[in-house]
Amino acid sequence: MSPWYSLRWFGQAQWQQFQLAHPLVLWLIPVVLFLFLLRFYLHRKAQQRLNMSLGQHIIPRSQGRAGRVQTTRSLLTLGRYLLPLSSFIGIACLLVALARPQIIREQRDEQSEGIDIMLAIDVSVSMSETDLPPTRLAAARRVAQAFVNTRKNDRIGLVVFAGEAFSLCPLTTDYGLVKQYLADLNDRMIRTSGTAIGDALARCINRMRGRAGSPADTVRQDSDKWKMERSKIIILLSDGDNTAGNLDPITAARLAKAFNIKLYTIAVGRPNRSSSKATTVDEGVLKTIATIGNGSFFRATDAGRLRDVFAQISQLEKSPIRVQIYEDVQDYYRVYIYWGITFLLISLFLKNTIFGNVLED
């Protein structure tokens, strides 16, 4: 911090940092300048002049002298402008002080509780089809990992299913752990054949129905009153109809709706037949449970479309954020008060010297 008498306070770099609390006050500066110029204009012909006597000759003060005397008189004449100039600068500094120059440092504090997301991924044998290169499961795995990277402050869990459904990872904010589980997915994890969509939804609902997390849940508990109930969503990726399990998908979807859980379903693969084997993708049940669960159904026929689907879900399901803005306000009007008083004192001093023309008062 420079001392108040530093000329840095009048530099352009310093003024670019300032914000004025009352900027309209600065309009009085040109008004004061106009009044000084008006006074000079009205009195320029009415100025009284003092003649100096040297013996028998009267030499008007307005007459010039030769050499050094004339130069001295010119300097003294210019010096008379110091009085109005210092008065104007003093008043201008006081007006700047009234405008209250400030430096405001802003700090933003963003808080977000996030949302709960359960990924339910089909790992049945049909997910090894290559219509989504290299395979459906590999494409889904990569895109799911990229989706995890885009989330912030969310709790994410993972359920895998084929003929049975298993909770592979509980809700957690340890995204590295979630991505590691995703990287380990393969079509040999569950030996039971089939597609148990209803059971997979039930596993997800069971993980999300309570606010209290499991011991593996790494989310930070916070008791801030502003926080509202977490949004909860299930993203289910599958390529087939429900052919196994103990729970009907429609019943599971209604149960999810009862717990205020949204369902997003993604049909992975192309709905056609290859030359070697059937690769049918049934969309009926996936559309139905998405409608019941107040979510959306998506078709992903290639890896690019699958990425777009996850990006669209990211846009639809954003975490509510509370932003607190703290402002550190530092006033610097005292600096210009000191400068204004200094210049006014200088003008008072000049008024009592040779630079002040007493005949004009």
Results as ranks from 00 to 15, higher is better:
residue 1 M to T: 09
residue 3 P to Q: 08
residue 3 P to I: 14
residue 5 Y to L: 03
residue 7 L to T: 03
residue 14 Q to H: 03
residue 17 Q to E: 11
residue 19 Q to G: 09
residue 22 H to L: 13
residue 24 L to F: 08
residue 24 L to R: 10
residue 25 V to C: 11
residue 35 L to G: 14
residue 40 F to A: 14
residue 41 Y to W: 14
residue 42 L to M: 03
residue 42 L to C: 06
residue 43 H to M: 14
residue 43 H to T: 15
residue 57 H to K: 12
residue 58 I to N: 05
residue 59 I to K: 11
residue 66 A to M: 05
residue 67 G to T: 08
residue 67 G to F: 10
residue 74 S to Q: 12
residue 79 G to K: 12
residue 80 R to Y: 11
residue 81 Y to W: 15
residue 82 L to A: 15
residue 84 P to T: 15
residue 88 F to Q: 14
residue 90 G to L: 07
residue 94 L to C: 09
residue 103 I to A: 04
residue 117 I to M: 02
residue 126 S to F: 12
residue 131 D to H: 02
residue 135 T to C: 07
residue 137 L to H: 06
residue 140 A to F: 12
residue 142 R to F: 12
residue 143 V to W: 01
residue 148 V to T: 03
residue 155 R to E: 06
residue 156 I to E: 06
residue 157 G to R: 09
residue 158 L to D: 04
residue 180 Q to E: 01
residue 182 L to K: 01
residue 187 D to L: 10
residue 189 M to N: 04
residue 190 I to N: 11
residue 193 S to E: 13
residue 198 G to E: 08
residue 216 A to R: 09
residue 225 K to R: 14
residue 226 W to S: 03
residue 240 G to H: 10
residue 256 A to D: 00
residue 259 F to L: 11
residue 272 N to F: 12
residue 283 E to G: 05
residue 285 V to S: 00
residue 285 V to H: 00
residue 288 T to S: 04
residue 290 A to W: 08
residue 291 T to L: 14
residue 291 T to R: 15
residue 293 G to P: 06
residue 293 G to M: 03
residue 297 F to I: 01
residue 301 T to L: 04
residue 305 R to I: 06
residue 306 L to A: 03
residue 314 S to A: 10
residue 316 L to G: 07
residue 318 K to S: 07
residue 319 S to L: 00
residue 319 S to H: 01
residue 331 D to Y: 13
residue 331 D to P: 02
residue 336 Y to C: 06
residue 350 L to Y: 05
residue 351 K to I: 11
residue 352 N to Q: 13
residue 353 T to Y: 10
residue 353 T to S: 11
residue 358 V to F: 10
